[in-house]
Nucleic acid binder design. Sequence first.
DNA 1: TTGACACATGCCCATATGGGCATATGATTG
DNA 2: CAATCATATGCCCATATGGGCATGTGTCAA
Lengths: 122, 122
Amino acid sequence: MARAATTTDAFNAVSEPRRRQIIDAVAAGERSVGDLVILLGLPQPLVSKHLRVLREVGLVAARDQGRQRLYRLNGVALKPIYDWVKDFEGLWSERFARMDSVLAELAQVTPESTQDGDHDDR
Amino acid sequence: MARAATTTDAFNAVSEPRRRQIIDAVAAGERSVGDLVILLGLPQPLVSKHLRVLREVGLVAARDQGRQRLYRLNGVALKPIYDWVKDFEGLWSERFARMDSVLAELAQVTPESTQDGDHDDR
DNA sequence: TTGACACATGCCCATATGGGCATATGATTG
DNA sequence: CAATCATATGCCCATATGGGCATGTGTCAA
């Protein structure tokens, strides 16, 4: 199998930068396709295609107003992403950074498990 | 151009479920490739490939210990995702839900902007 | 009814994927 | 040195992509 379809879930749908831009734009309020075309500076068909993906994953909804189609954000669809990533927030917060320093000091005071025969990267 | 490479950024790298599993596993502490193979139940070459993607985006780092290679999480690489998605958190929080109710009540009291000539979906 | 406007689709292409399989590379042990 | 264990790569395939372009569909105005 190839890469999972972009319409598989929010994670895949949102991996496209342009799609994130659309979400940002739509989050501020309803936008017509034309609005988005101007905002993103992309050809209309392309914008429509991105919107289709977002719609299929439930990230946006739309309603017709005359000949325009107004898209709006459906925030809840982003919850899975938030829920997954929020647990890692501590890893770069200042509180954690401070804890790192403390651990570093402790390591100096009791340099026992500082074995670490070899270390590397890559 | 086709879809952006999975090694383009954290968003793309993380769109793969298995890769998220690896991140979860590695978040708990260093894991050897073999550990991950067992944990995920995937063929070793596949795990190595996923790890490569994660490494190229800086989501994980590794060090050699004997013939094993221990991978660890580099949480900060997830920050861009968190930063982007956190702004939408209010959209499904209880506070917001309650605000919705209030707005609904207000709409009943002052049913003026309840025009909404037509509405639809899709 | 006809024409213009706003979007959505269809088709074509180059590209990179996830996975399967075999094999190369490195380190450890006998 | 040879055999073995732990990973990483290489190659092959089917698939779905983002984008470009032309065209279909539905709505409104003249």
